[in-house]
């Protein structure tokens, strides 16, 4: 066979392979659920961390009359990315983000009604706290915020510049200084020393976890649910809930022109059954009366969510995100932004 014919052969094989791949999985792409004249399809756009929890609750909901026969189209990614995607036209019926600001963006774009958070929980569907993730056995004995700024401790935290959800970590540190009676100057000094010890600022929460698991740093600032999930997956880590920490509030909202079933879904999320599913994966319940069973991966599975000595929250202690964002994270004048640049210069 001459070379030309062989080239033609190669092209033919590639073409057939492509068409074969295209043909054989043309049926894939439909998620589970009996195809049925009544079937509704709901679109969920969420941040990456609660994917497993959402999937578990979807299964639970499908067993109720309201949720029967509903199929889901989902997208998970970094909270800010997802929010911007919805703003740019990504179809969504329900959104679950890491920060209130990501929902506010959609309110401003006219996609979400401003009354979305006018319920008892303030629109928050899942919750957690900031924790320190350390190597198995906590060899450096990191237990408190002061331990973090000790000499030789290497910290990994997601980048507050490129990851909105990273801001919880930094604010938790700041808040603990103020709660201890320190002044704003003390807090600035503390945060500066914190940044001096930071060795990596990966783009997102999961990136940071990956970097830490690959060996970077001694301690990872992260969320309790992330630590519990990593533990459940068998990663060799431990975590410490510091005495004073910040409650992380993740909002969930239904879009204005969403399918009416989406509202039923949102209501379901506030039931004890749904919150129990969140709890199994490391999230703290947002309503009372939830029976939290054994949570695998927690420090103490029987008592998975100990109440820290001081539990701060963004509204009471920081004036809400509308105040905190400009004050701390403004591109030019934000306190944390300036510290980040200063510490960068000094090395």
């Amino acid at each position: 066979m001459n070379a030309k014919a062989r080239a033609g052969w190669l092209a033919g094989v590639v073409a057939v392979a492509t068409m074969g791949l295209a043909g054989c999985s043309s049926a894939v792409g439909e998620t589970s659920g009996a195809p049925d004249a009544e079937a509704t399809s709901l679109s969920l756009v969420g941040f990456a961390v609660p994917k497993a929890a959402n999937n578990a609750i979807q299964t639970l909901w499908a067993q109720t009359p309201e949720g029967a026969g509903v199929t889901w189209v989902e997208s998970y990614g970094a909270s800010g990315d997802q929010s911007r995607a919805v703003e740019a036209g990504l179809e969504a019926d329900y959104v679950h983000f890491s920060l209130e600001g990501d929902v506010t963006r959609l309110v401003d774009a006219g996609l979400v009604d401003p009354t979305w958070k006018d319920n008892e929980q303030g629109g928050i569907v899942s919750s957690s706290v900031v924790v320190f993730v350390v190597r198995e056995g906590n060899p450096k004995g990191i237990d408190s915020w002061d331990d973090l700024i000790a000499d030789g401790v290497e910290i990994v935290t997601p980048n507050p510049g490129s990851s909105g959800s990273a801001r919880w970590n930094i604010l938790a540190g700041w808040g603990s200084v103020i709660a201890d009676g320190g002044s704003e100057d003390d807090a600035i000094e503390y945060t500066t020393e914190l940044f001096n010890n930071i060795v990596a600022l990966p783009g997102s929460g999961r990136d940071a976890t990956s970097a830490f698991l690959a060996g970077t740093g001694d301690v990872l600032l992260s969320y309790e649910n992330e630590a519990i999930l990593a533990s459940q997956e068998g990663e060799p880590i431990d975590y410490v809930v510091p005495d004073s920490t910040l409650r992380i509030d993740n909002p969930g909202a239904v879009l204005k022109d969403a399918d009416p079933k989406a509202k039923a879904w949102l209501d379901f999320l506030y039931t004890p059954e749904a919150q129990a599913e969140f709890a199994k994966l490391g999230f703290r319940p947002v309503i009372d009366g939830v029976t939290v069973g054994e949570v695998e991966g927690a420090n103490d599975p029987a008592n998975a969510f100990p109440t820290p000595g001081t539990l701060l929250n963004i509204n009471d202690d920081f004036g809400g995100w509308s105040e905190a964002n400009p004050k701390f994270f403004d591109e030019d004048n934000g306190i944390v932004t300036k510290i980040q640049v200063e510490t960068g210069k000094s090395s």
Partner: peptide, 29 residues
């Protein structure tokens, strides 16, 4: 993304800087 650490003024490259601006809603910058 994973290996450079994105440390401001030290190991942050323009692609990451652009991403930071985009995340902050500052498309112009």
């Amino acid at each position: 993304v994973l290996i450079s650490g994105n440390l401001a003024l030290r190991t942050e490259v323009t692609s990451v800087r652009i991403l930071t601006y985009v995340e902050g809603g500052q498309s112009a910058q």
